[in-house]
Design a protein around this nucleic acid. Structure first.
Length: 571
RNA sequence: GCCGACGUAGCUCAGAGGUAGAGCAGCUCACUCGUAAUGAGCAGGUCGUGAGUUCAAUUCUCACCGUCGGCUCCA
């Protein structure tokens, strides 16, 4: 981030802390950094804050800005600072100081408020021109769920009012694109408390979009040498014990018992794919074997994290497991990255990559983890693809490359992931016969391209703002008449479009054209075909295009060809 | 799971300790209309669920379920 903006926001968080300290005696301050979208400050305040408090705090902040109080930095001996903050009752600051090894620290003072802070800061509070407090939230001290929960106040700040307004407009845009809102408007899906939290119900139009995505996926996988497989939803508990899931992933799993035998409902698809591999003796010539399944998995996600389609408890992954020889690692990982590149280009996403390394809770030897991490890095390095390192964030069975999509308005989403696994082949004693006649251990790659269909659909809805491209639009064309007289003509055009494989609806209700158009606009249908007396007489149609513009005197065949053309994916 | 807010008709929301209201949607009727909401009428709710306080609870209290904003976690 821009350093000046960073300083501005950091100073605004101090400004807020000053206001809070002045308004609410007894409040303790924790930490208050600048973040990508603004800043926050965490407070320990027993009664907690309300939305009305935000208004009060904001007002007090304005006053402090007007007073233009100088912000002064002082170097202090660590022990001196400990004494100072202990006296002030700022126990969180003392805790922070105890972790600092430097003999001297920076302490910033503005009026009545003094904070431990590395800085830098603006010279005075009057330099803050445009800010707004946005929301209240709970947040654990130091981000650890075993610690006390503090009250966090989020806000944002910009160099001027115009930039602030632009950001607030952006937040409005985000709201408008909310997939839950659009999902309702376009009648795509619902989640019902009667059925259960985090369980998605697809309505006909949502189911159609999902079908189109899945159909696309199947074709793309066939093209790239994947084999389709299917596995059961429940597998014996012993399998999950053997794989390490029971030990490492139990809190996220659902279990059931049939005839006194315990089963686990799959949270991942790998085990049945392993069973397919094991069903025969494999030769080095057979590898790589790529097993693909649109596999539905169930995971017990904590209630507080559920969110529309983005975070659910049952979802379908475009999942594949590739069994390969170690010498094929580079080529296969690269193949997957190319696959992701191809697919994301079609949807218009850019993406960034991240490598995650061994977590605390994991299986396998250090040596295997190092080999796996090296393999992932080697591919990205040799392709000169930039990536961030995310230490300790891998899956329990192996390190991974996470791919974060950037949508049309710049937000990032975790979807695709490539995971390198030496552990499960070991646990299930997988092998192949090598050219030297010796039994060797294959490597396994776990990977998804879209990730979870549910999340990807949610991301797509927000990315497109509900305006699906023609090939994905559940309804591509709506035909509307002006008076009853044109009804037979509307049906004739409709039939021709249906024959051409176009997803078309008719709106021959006895309503005004304005109403019909309004409703189709809300549903974001790509094309509105309007036929009245004139069009019927001339045997043509008028087309209103979703993204603007109007086509007059269009022959039905020409229009059908146009839509057919757009319905084909080209690369 | 945790912090906070919320849950009233299909949807968006108003309301008050004495057992509910609007707009849109739905249905009926009229209107046959040219580019983002034609008009009238009708119908529609165990006020999320359960317990408690009270003469009386949808309103107050508690628990549970769910939603929203975050935290932690994640595809």
């Amino acid at each position: 981030m821009n350093e000046n903006l960073d300083t501005l926001r950091h100073s605004t968080s101090h400004l807020m802390a000053q206001a809070v300290r002045e308004l609410y005696p007894g409040v303790k301050v924790a930490i208050g950094p600048s973040i990508e979208t603004g800043f926050y400050y965490d407070f320990d305040y027993e009664p907690g804050f309300t939305d009305e408090d935000l208004v009060k705090i904001e007002k007090r902040m304005e006053e402090i800005v007007k007073a233009d109080i100088p912000i002064e930095c002082k170097r202090m001996k660590r022990e001196e600072a400990v004494e100072f903050f202990s006296k002030a009752g700022e126990t969180y600051k003392v805790e922070l100081l105890n972790d600092i090894t430097d003999p001297e620290v920076n302490v910033y003072t503005q009026g009545s408020f003094t904070d431990l802070c590395r800085g830098p800061h603006l010279p005075s509070t009057g330099k803050i021109k445009a800010f707004k407090l946005l929301s209240l939230a709970g947040a654990y001290w130091r981000g650890d769920e075993h610690n006390k929960m503090l009250t966090r106040i989020y806000g944002t700040a910009f160099p001027d009012k115009k930039a602030l307004k632009e950001y607030l407009d952006f937040l409005e845009e985000v709201k408008k694109r909310d997939h839950r809102r659009i999902g309702k408007d376009l009648d795509l899906f619902s989640v019902s408390d009667e059925t259960g939290a985090g369980l998605v119900i697809y309505h006909p139009k949502g189911a159609l979009v999902r079908y189109l995505l899945e159909d696309f996926e199947r074709r793309e996988h066939l093209k790239r040498g994947y084999d389709f497989v299917y596995g059961p939803h429940i597998l014996k508990l012993d399998m999950w014990k053997k794989s390490g899931h029971f030990e490492n992933y139990r809190e996220n799993m659902y279990f059931t018992k049939i005839d006194e035998v315990e089963y686990g409902i799959k949270p991942m698809n790998c085990l049945s794919h392993i069973m397919v591999y094991k069903s025969q003796i494999r030769s080095y010539r057979d590898l790589p074997l790529r097993y693909f399944e649109l596999g539905t998995v169930s995971r017990h996600e904590k209630s507080g994290v559920l969110h529309g389609l983005m975070r659910v408890r049952e979802f379908t992954q475009d999942d594949a497991h590739i069994f390969l020889r170690p010498d094929q690692l580079h080529q296969e990982i690269l193949g997957i990255i190319r696959f992701v590149q191809d697919v994301m280009k079609i949807f218009g996403f850019q993406f960034e990559m991240e490598i995650s390394t061994r977590p605390a809770k994991s299986i396998g030897s250090d040596e295997d983890w190092e080999r796996a991490e090296a393999a992932l890095k080697e591919v990205l390095d040799s392709e000169r693809l930039p990536y961030d390192l995310n230490e300790g964030d891998g899956a329990f069975y192996g390190p991974k490359i996470d791919i974060k999509l950037k949508d049309a308005i710049g937000r990032k989403w975790q979807c695709a992931t490539i995971q390198c696994d030496f552990a499960l082949p070991e646990r299930f004693d997988l092998h192949y016969m090598d050219s030297d006649g010796k039994r060797k251990r294959p490597v396994m790659l776990h990977r998804v391209i879209l990730g979870a269909i549910e999340r990807f659909l949610g991301v797509l809805i927000e990315h497109y703002g509900g305006k699906f491209p023609v090939w994905l639009a559940p309804v591509q064309v709506v035909i509307m008449n002006i008076t009853d007289e044109q009804e037979p003509y509307v049906r004739k055009i409709r039939d021709a479009m249906v024959d051409a494989g176009i997803r078309v609806e008719v709106d021959t209700r006895n309503e005004k054209l304005g109403l019909k158009i309004r409703e189709s606009v809300v549903k974001k249908i790509p094309y509105m075909v309007i036929v009245g007396k004139v069009e019927m007489e001339q045997n043509n149609m008028t087309v209103r295009v979703r993204d603007g513009g109007e086509l007059k005197d269009v022959a039905t065949d020409d229009f059908i060809n146009r839509v057919k053309e757009e319905n084909i994916l080209r690369r």
